[in-house]
């Protein structure tokens, strides 16, 4: 904040454009947002990390995204959340980044091998599922 803002009337900032400002928007906009949200709460509930640790990690993820040019308009919130979740999981050594990468590829292969409309199940492509 510029010192001049402390003395006189603050310089008006531009309007909050393009932000949905009404009640009734969906809680989660995609199923993955809900899953990522619940995973963090469940890990916290089991004592894997404290909520202060979580808030700090999430803040860092948001700052990192901003410094990479994310306009951070709220719609990327769960992407930051996911980064924080992954950071926490690897920091607490619940698994490794390599294993997450391998498992992600396995899900993508499974999806490609699943006829559209059927539930996607790991291993559907016939290849062995990489370890957790």
């Amino acid at each position: 904040m510029k010192p001049s803002n402390l003395a006189g009337a603050p310089t008006p900032l531009p309007p909050l454009e393009n932000l949905p400002q009404h009640d009734g928007e969906p809680v989660f906009r995609a199923p993955w947002e809900a899953r990522a949200f619940a995973l963090a709460l469940e890990l916290h509930g089991r004592g894997v990390f404290t909520w202060s640790e979580w808030a700090e990690t999430l803040s860092q993820a948001i700052r990192d995204a901003q410094s990479r040019g994310d306009p951070d308009c709220g719609d990327s919130y769960y992407e930051h959340w996911l980064v924080a979740l992954e950071t926490m999981i690897t920091r607490k050594a619940l698994t490794s980044a390599d294993r997450i990468d391998a498992r992600q590829d396995a899900w993508l292969r499974a999806a490609a091998a699943t006829p559209h409309g059927e539930p996607i199940e790991l291993g559907r492509d016939g290849a062995p599922v990489p370890p957790a």
Binding site: W32, R99, I100
Partner: peptide, 27 residues
């Protein structure tokens, strides 16, 4: 049916985390 389903990278990433955490008993 001839080309299967598509998952976004993000969706697959979250499924990766969830399946790992479930298998290891963390959630």
């Amino acid at each position: 049916n001839d080309h299967g389903s598509h998952l976004s990278q993000t969706d697959a990433r979250v499924r990766a985390l969830e399946s790992i955490l479930i298998e290891k008993g963390y959630v």
